[in-house]
Design a binder for these strands. Sequence first.
DNA 1: GCATCGATGTGTACGATGCCCACATTGAAG
DNA 2: CTTCAATGTGGGCATCGTACACATCGATGC
Lengths: 206, 206
Amino acid sequence: MWTLSTSTGSGYHHGDLRAALLDSALALLDTEGPGELSLRAVARHAGVSPNAPYRHYRDKEALLAALAARGFTELGERLAAVAPGDAPDAEVIAMACAAVDYALDHPGVYRLMFGQACSSHPDTIAASDAAIAIVAERIAAIAEPERREPLRIGIWALVHGLSTLLLDERLGTPTRAEADALVETVVRTMLGTGPDVSAPGRWGAP
Amino acid sequence: MWTLSTSTGSGYHHGDLRAALLDSALALLDTEGPGELSLRAVARHAGVSPNAPYRHYRDKEALLAALAARGFTELGERLAAVAPGDAPDAEVIAMACAAVDYALDHPGVYRLMFGQACSSHPDTIAASDAAIAIVAERIAAIAEPERREPLRIGIWALVHGLSTLLLDERLGTPTRAEADALVETVVRTMLGTGPDVSAPGRWGAP
DNA sequence: GCATCGATGTGTACGATGCCCACATTGAAG
DNA sequence: CTTCAATGTGGGCATCGTACACATCGATGC
């Protein structure tokens, strides 16, 4: 009894509560937002007592940080999976779309990853750095040295900002394809690599 | 007695609790982060009972939304105050720096403004739209029509992303001047208007 | 086989919070 | 001076995070 979730253990002991708690938290996060997520609710969803989580995570923040870290890892995998295209523009845009798609797929986790609930936790920071490193690697293979750092920061910031705007529905409620198209347009425009590269200057005619 | 904060009223009645609560919340926000901010603590700081705020704000979210709205208004004023420079680049960079400076000046309020605690509240959205409109206006005066929308979205997203990264100290702990310089570099690089506009291509030599 | 022990889960408890209710106080209008 | 609506107070409830003591179990040594 009591097993609402995946319990490999038998009755009293759960088997792998550590992971099960993350799964439960994930399930609840994508339903409601973080901040509304209570540790007790996670425990309930996992079918254990309110205090069981404390055997695996120091406190609520640690659990959230673990979840955020998992999120950064998955985001990193998606980023690493974009084909090293021939055109630098296409590669950057593909990575931007991958990140935005991840945010749209997991709004709760994404907000957690970039929210303030666990942003200062070492686990979150480490996982975040790993994901950024993947972007930095790609940028380094594309851009000349002096531009690498600003581009890395700028692209990361731009993509995060776009994801936030989309999640908060501040850019309407586009479909996935529409969102990707929007991301492409914005990235191209910002980087000055518009559809017609021979556009009349950066800002337009005077 | 009981008057820890600006109380224009006499004893029982406060005078202007509505505004005083915002001030108290602001003071507490810049100390601790939002999410840690409790309505009761705000009431305590204002020197009233825990339930007094409910006479002026429907619930906690409404108070936070009012504070966020005030933040967007001030941010908008700063944005509107940047001199309509001769060079479009300089103007955009000045606005970007103004926004980032605001974030650094009021970390708590900034996180509130873009956090999920009250992002869906109508007051927050209205004030946010007003601030964005100011940016849109400037962009419209600078860029050609087809690029206005992507530029507005992209610049807003980029600046917000930069602010977030800076607030979370993910870009080190620069001084104000260093932060502004960083913003300028990143914006210039992203927009392709580097110090030497005749740089060898967007990404560098192949 | 069986006792033992560390790891893991439970139960109880405390302070704090958001918010609902009924009540108290007040300044201003009649 | 009375009355009333606006405003602030106090008590109460469900929930939360988490500290403490206790219960239960699987592996380990004999």
